[in-house]
């Protein structure tokens, strides 16, 4: 890792190089993952074919939480060290995280109807993920609502940090409270309660989603950097 990665110009050069490779890896991993998830994995003993929704739902839930952590961590670094690149990463990640969280909510809902018998309930897990979605939306809105971009950065970063408290709440909601949502099958890695033939497609889909996130992030980062260059230029001309 070069030391001057915090320099936007150097940073941009790096993501330009990485971006196409991330795209290629995303396509390969997604193809293999979907093939496993749809054609090459067993049905569940209770859920039948409906279990395949999990291969979309669980990875997007993990990604939503991971991306929020990325947003919070970069906001923290941005607030303390004042690195522009850190805040740009937060700003570029947030919409991707919002979309993954939405995919998680919608896919979970469409699994809930046939399995639980309801589209939606206000239990601790579902509600806390719903709140996560609104923290993403809040961050996006806050970062765009101030005329002074520095002020917008600060306020949205603080919002991102406060919202980070929600992440452990989501994770442990199924253990703290009685919920309709089932508890984790895979976090106890030594003894997962999911059969290995279902775990392989699940982990492949997670990797695929992770690479899709990184690929989209590199594209959005380039757009953000261009946007910033344009704004700075416009301010200087004035």
């Amino acid at each position: 890792m070069p030391k001057n990665l915090a320099n936007p110009g150097v940073f941009e050069k790096y993501i330009r190089t990485f971006s196409p490779w991330l795209g290629v890896f995303s396509i390969v991993l997604l193809s293999v993952g979907l093939w496993f998830a749809i054609f090459n994995s067993p049905v569940d003993y209770i859920q039948g074919e409906t279990v395949r929704i999990m291969y979309i739902h669980v990875p997007s839930a993990w990604l939503g939480m991971t991306i929020y952590s990325v947003v919070a961590l970069s906001s923290f670094i941005g607030l303390i060290y004042g690195h522009i690149v850190a805040y740009i990463i937060a700003k570029a990640s947030a919409p991707i995280g919002a979309v993954f969280t939405l995919i998680c909510l919608v896919s979970g809902s469409s699994w809930g109807k046939p399995m639980w018998g309801t589209w939606w309930v206000w239990d601790a897990r579902l509600t806390s993920v719903f709140i996560l979605f609104f923290f993403f939306i809040g961050f996006i809105i806050f970062s765009k609502s101030f005329k002074d971009p520095v002020k917008g950065e600060k306020i949205s970063s603080i919002l991102a940090l406060v919202g980070f408290i929600n992440i452990p709440i989501i994770k442990f909601s199924v253990d703290f409270w009685n919920t309709l949502h089932q508890s984790a099958s895979i976090s106890k890695l030594d003894n997962p309660t999911i059969h290995v033939d279902m775990m392989i497609p699940l982990l492949l889909m997670f990797l695929a989603f992770l690479f899709i996130f990184m690929f989209l992030l590199t594209i959005r980062l380039q757009a953000e950097l261009n946007d910033r260059r344009y704004v700075t230029h416009a301010l200087n001309v004035k």
């Binding site: 859920q47 089932q182 508890s183 999911i194 059969h195 033939d197 279902m198």
Partner: peptide
């Protein structure tokens, strides 16, 4: 539904 997933 519980957290157990396995083939029939």
């Amino acid at each position: 539904h519980d957290e157990n997933y396995m083939p029939p």
